[in-house]
Simulated scan of single mutants.
Amino acid sequence: MSGWRDNCLGDGSFAHIGGLVATRLRDVTTDLSALDGAGWWAVVVTYEGKVTCARFDDVRPAPPGPRLAAGREPWRGPEPGAWHGSLDQAAYEAGVEKIRAYIEQGEVYQANLCRVLSAPLPRAGRDPLALAVRLAEGNPAAHAAAIALRGLTVVSASPELYLSRDGDLVESRPIKGTARTPEGLLDKDRAENVMIVDLVRNDLGQVAEVGSVAVPDLCRVEEYPGLVHMVSTVRARLAAGQGWPELFAATFPPGSVTGAPKSSALRIINELEPEPRGPYCGAVGWVDADRRKAALAVGIRTFWLEDDQIRFGTGAGITWGSDPRGEWRETELKASRLIALASYRETGGVT
């Protein structure tokens, strides 16, 4: 793969995702219906619903992980102490208590509370592919992605499938429940997972053939670098006439990063979170319209670069059984490994 980025258009656009490398950008659209047409697309949809679909003409297999061409600079991220969050610990824990109060009032059963971490980027070593290399080495992920377009750069190590598609068969694998070890998972985690599975079933049911929604796997414990997650699988077959616009309208934002009921959770999130989530908690992935195949991840464990800053989001699902300090620690656990990999210290390593 050496030198492949040199074959990109002059604006440097590329996508490295799903075991493929895509270059020679043809066009960009905000219209999800284009994904029901033709071509291979890299897709980023922010949590707030801003759609970017980029069609590439040159799409070819890539080695298992991204590599830097000879002579390219390795990643040089911000200093470890340069990161600051949209919510500090006191504000986050107060937000948890506010959500518990809403639960007590019957307005919501669960809501995700997130914070965005930001740090200034040094001028040298900003290559997003170099960050993707760093993440692939230190935190390999099933849905890793690096997408660079004019005005949009996203590097993700997401473990969570938002939607896959094979013809009319669609699947979602929501994650709810996180701990350092399987023994650390709580009854609260299983209850949270089951609630979100029910929400995803209902979402997919809006666009699925009657009777086709199924849950072949419930609350499976899976190991990831530095932690474990509880993961379920929801599967359905799209009804006739239902395409990507309808699928997104029914299921976005993903239930695992919003809450239940989703409408109430969205309102509470908007009230308590001071900054937009951006690509974090949105969708990042690819769609092959010609083959009618796709894999879109939930934009967790995801960095994005904008305005000379690097940003990263982390959060937790809040239920009545939530402990505010414990939920803060869960957000720290989810962020710590990735932030360390993206940070730089004088010895040339990571924290």
Rank of each mutant, 00 (worst) to 15 (best):
A294K: 04
F14W: 10
P216C: 07
P182A: 11
L131K: 13
D6W: 09
L68N: 07
F312Q: 08
G349I: 06
A214I: 10
R24T: 12
R67P: 01
A342M: 05
E97S: 13
A249W: 04
T46P: 02
C8W: 03
P66R: 09
C281A: 11
I17L: 14
P261Y: 06
W320P: 02
A260S: 14
G315L: 08
V59N: 03
A141K: 09
L185P: 02
V287P: 08
G315D: 01
R190I: 11
S172C: 12
G299I: 01
E222Q: 12
W75P: 00
V231P: 02
E327P: 03
I310M: 13
N270S: 15
V284D: 02
S336G: 06
L163K: 04
A157Y: 04
W40F: 15
D168M: 12
I269C: 01
A295V: 11
R60H: 15
G77C: 04
L341E: 00
L227P: 01
S322W: 01
L199K: 02
W328F: 08
V133T: 10
R337H: 06
S158H: 05
V197W: 00
P128G: 09
F303P: 02
A208D: 00
F248C: 08
D203A: 14
I339H: 00
T52K: 11
A54S: 08
L338T: 01
R55I: 07
D57A: 15
D288M: 10
R26D: 07
S33R: 15
P140E: 00
S263L: 14
Q242T: 14
Y162I: 02
T233N: 13
R311S: 12
P128H: 10
V234A: 04
Y109A: 12
P279K: 05
A54G: 07
